[in-house]
């Protein structure tokens, strides 16, 4: 019984992956991690230069699973009501009608999240965390399937409001895709001679199937030894000399879930250390607060994570 579940899940994942890859060339690792977070019910933060296909990716994903997709472009004068929605007074009926904001969707692309004021940011972040919003005292639930891809532009930092470190935890993983390989870039422009592949994307999975995959992920087994391994990694980050505050328990949970997802994608019912190591960087990196002295000495979260991983003995 379980075996079939696993097999189904793997098939569905491959299907989705292939579908996306028809549109997005290269970046397999990134898409794999993104789908991992997607199937775990977490959210993704992409740090990337403009024009690398983030919107396309989100749209493709939405189309592949046939759900609705909304995009918010964050600007400094964006108000929380622009995200959540607003109750507009209807004169005729003498009542307030709630017009839901873009957050009431399944797949949300929050573009350049670091350009909006902290108040606006927190409106979205709270929605992500609670899966509900409160409008004028009333609680409104968001969609069951709610997946946010937020993007940050690393270069332009004039007049930006960096996401508060405490809120970074809301994102399960952070990815920095980067530019394409030469061959891949050629492929992209060659394909678009014919027509944008996005237009020909079709739906391959339904919401139900997605929830089934999510359930299957939760059944992936992980031995106690590896659970200790995960927690050891997280605890070591707290001891690093370059870090003021290390990763929290949320990070341990996230790392475990993503490892399970990665194990599943590989067709296994159990997690192996390589899954954990693959997931560690994207899951933990953005949760670490690097001290300013280290920042200016060129210490990045990646370097810290590499060091942490090399310090801990891998169960072999």
């Amino acid at each position: 019984m379980e075996k079939t579940n696993i097999k189904n899940a793997v098939d569905r994942y491959s299907l989705l992956l292939k579908n996306i890859q028809k549109v997005i060339k290269g970046k397999e690792q990134m898409i794999k991690m993104l789908l991992g977070a997607f199937f775990c019910g977490g959210h993704v933060l992409l740090e990337d230069v403009p024009g690398t296909g983030k919107t396309t990716l989100a749209k493709t994903l939405a189309k592949s699973i046939g759900t609705n997709f909304k995009r918010i472009q964050f600007t400094p004068d964006l108000l929380p009501s622009d995200i959540i929605g607003v109750s507009i007074y209807n004169h005729q009926d003498n009542n307030f009608v709630f017009h839901p904001g873009p957050v009431f969707t399944s797949i949300l692309l929050a573009d350049e999240i670091n350009r909006a004021s902290p108040r606006t940011q927190s409106a979205l972040l709270e929605a992500m965390g609670e899966k509900q919003v409160s409008v004028e005292g009333e609680k409104k639930m968001l969609n069951n399937l709610f997946f946010v891809i937020a993007t940050e532009n690393p270069i332009e930092s004039h007049g930006t409001y960096p996401l508060p470190e405490s809120q970074m935890d809301r994102f399960m993983i952070k990815l920095s895709p980067g530019y394409l390989e030469r061959d891949e870039e050629v492929l992209v422009i060659s394909e678009q001679l014919i027509g944008h592949p996005l237009n020909s994307t079709s739906r391959v999975l339904g919401e139900e199937e997605i929830f089934q995959v999510m359930d299957t992920i939760q059944t992936v087994r992980i031995s106690e030894e590896l659970r200790y391994y995960i927690v050891d990694i997280i605890r070591t980050t707290r001891n690093s000399e370059h870090v003021t505050v290390g990763a929290s328990v949320r990070a341990s949970l996230a790392l475990m879930k993503i490892s399970q997802a990665l194990a599943l994608f590989d067709g296994r019912e159990f997690v192996i250390p390589e899954d954990i190591q693959e997931a560690a960087g994207p899951v933990i990196g953005h949760r670490l607060q690097i001290i300013p002295q280290a920042k200016f000495s060129g210490i990045t979260p990646q370097i810290v994570m590499e060091k942490v991983l090399s310090e801990i003995k891998i169960p072999t």
């Binding site: 200016f296 000495s297 060129g298």
Partner: peptide, 13 residues
């Protein structure tokens, strides 16, 4: 080499 570093802090590259 990074472009900048901080005095008194070890620079690794």
């Amino acid at each position: 080499l990074p472009k900048t570093c901080i005095a008194g802090r070890e620079l690794r590259y």
